[in-house]
Amino acid sequence: MAGFNRRQFIHALAGTALLAPLLARGNILAESKTMVRLGVTDLSFHHATGAVVTAVLQRMGFAVERSYALHEANFEQLRVGSIDMIASAWIPSSHGLYKTRVEEQVATRELGLHYAPYALWGVPDYIPVSEVDSVEDLLKPQVKAQMHKAIQGIGPGAGITRFSLRMMDDYGLAAAGYSFRTGTQEECVGAFEKLVQTQRWGVVPLWHPQFLHFRHRIRDLKDPKGLLGSVDRAVLLARADRLDHFTATQIQVLDNIRLSNAIVAELDYAINRDGKSADQAAILWLDKNPQMLASWLAPLG
């Protein structure tokens, strides 16, 4: 991780039960010239998982070079070989199409299970469920009268954006006066927080995991047409031809990485609201959860 050298790593783990076994494993802390080029989708919760993966790679002696791009561009970099792996790919719904394009060029391998993401349209829980329980309820005259009509999304390459654009047409929302616009993660989050601040009715296209869920109660709207896709697997997606740099044991360590929606939402909150960098959030979390890191590293002996 940028700006975090070996001496700082040892200092960060001082005082934990994990330090002694790590120091005993020279193969983990050994210097290595092997560079891993890790693509990270340029949204904060992806930064969080990317930082965790980076920390694990560095503990196995790899140097890590991270690059940041939005969804589709990241997969194109994987396809042409500019990067070796992506943290994290959402398979099969959100990023499945991009993965297929990569595999037209090169085989891939899924490693680990970072969390179980899914897209949603959500409303603040102060909106009565009796009034708004489903996307179809947005068409009720009494709901339309109160609902903020602008629906603020994120970038055009995101799965939630693709799903939402189809929902606007298939549910007749555009014809009913609603509008959908793409933007940044900050604009999407800000739209929800502004609704809460003013206690206004509105709907925001979101996803799990995301730091808003760590702070707010957000109710998922039912999607009778099933346009929001399934629950995905968030994985480390690697080019198979780049795994030659890894031993079978090291690949097993990467495959052992298991997080959760709640863990990533916590890390994302630390980044967005506690002022931590992604690396700081990851190191602090790993320091508080040494048993989880130890379980991932167990194949190294």
Rank of each mutant, 00 (worst) to 15 (best):
251 I>R: 13
264 V>S: 03
194 K>M: 11
236 L>T: 13
250 Q>T: 00
220 D>I: 02
230 S>L: 14
208 H>W: 08
275 G>T: 08
240 A>Q: 15
288 K>C: 08
259 L>E: 01
234 A>M: 10
252 Q>Y: 09
187 E>P: 07
210 Q>S: 12
279 D>L: 07
265 A>N: 06
260 S>L: 07
194 K>S: 03
211 F>S: 06
231 V>M: 13
201 W>R: 06
232 D>I: 02
207 W>C: 15
244 D>R: 14
194 K>A: 15
280 Q>S: 08
191 A>M: 09
198 T>N: 12
235 V>R: 05
201 W>K: 09
202 G>Y: 00
280 Q>R: 13
220 D>Q: 10
262 A>V: 02
204 V>A: 01
199 Q>R: 14
197 Q>K: 14
246 F>G: 08
242 R>V: 11
237 L>Y: 08
242 R>Y: 11
272 N>C: 11
220 D>V: 07
238 A>H: 02
229 G>I: 04
190 G>P: 14
216 H>A: 00
270 A>R: 15
270 A>K: 09
222 K>D: 09
264 V>Y: 04
191 A>D: 04
276 K>F: 13
252 Q>I: 02
241 D>L: 12
186 E>N: 10
204 V>P: 00
207 W>I: 15
277 S>K: 06
250 Q>P: 07
276 K>H: 06
286 L>P: 00
208 H>S: 14
243 L>S: 06
270 A>H: 15
233 R>D: 14
195 L>N: 10
258 R>N: 05
187 E>N: 10
284 L>P: 05
253 V>F: 00
264 V>N: 12
235 V>K: 01
244 D>L: 05
273 R>C: 01
269 Y>F: 12
219 R>N: 01
278 A>L: 02
282 A>G: 10
248 A>D: 12
286 L>T: 05
204 V>K: 06
279 D>P: 11
237 L>H: 05
184 T>G: 04
257 I>C: 05
252 Q>C: 00
208 H>R: 13
218 I>A: 08
254 L>N: 00
284 L>D: 14
260 S>R: 13
241 D>C: 14
212 L>D: 06
232 D>V: 11
239 R>D: 13
223 D>C: 07
232 D>T: 08
235 V>S: 08
276 K>D: 15
192 F>R: 04
225 K>S: 09
260 S>N: 07
213 H>G: 02
211 F>R: 09
214 F>R: 12
262 A>H: 04
250 Q>D: 00
228 L>E: 07
284 L>R: 06
254 L>K: 01
273 R>F: 09
222 K>F: 03
200 R>D: 14
228 L>W: 00
243 L>D: 02
279 D>N: 15
287 D>W: 15
270 A>P: 04
195 L>H: 00
273 R>T: 02
193 E>H: 10
248 A>E: 14
207 W>D: 15
211 F>L: 12
202 G>C: 05
252 Q>G: 05
222 K>S: 14
205 P>Q: 10
234 A>Q: 07
277 S>A: 06
263 I>W: 04
225 K>T: 02
285 W>K: 11
266 E>I: 03
206 L>W: 07
283 I>F: 12
281 A>C: 04
212 L>P: 12
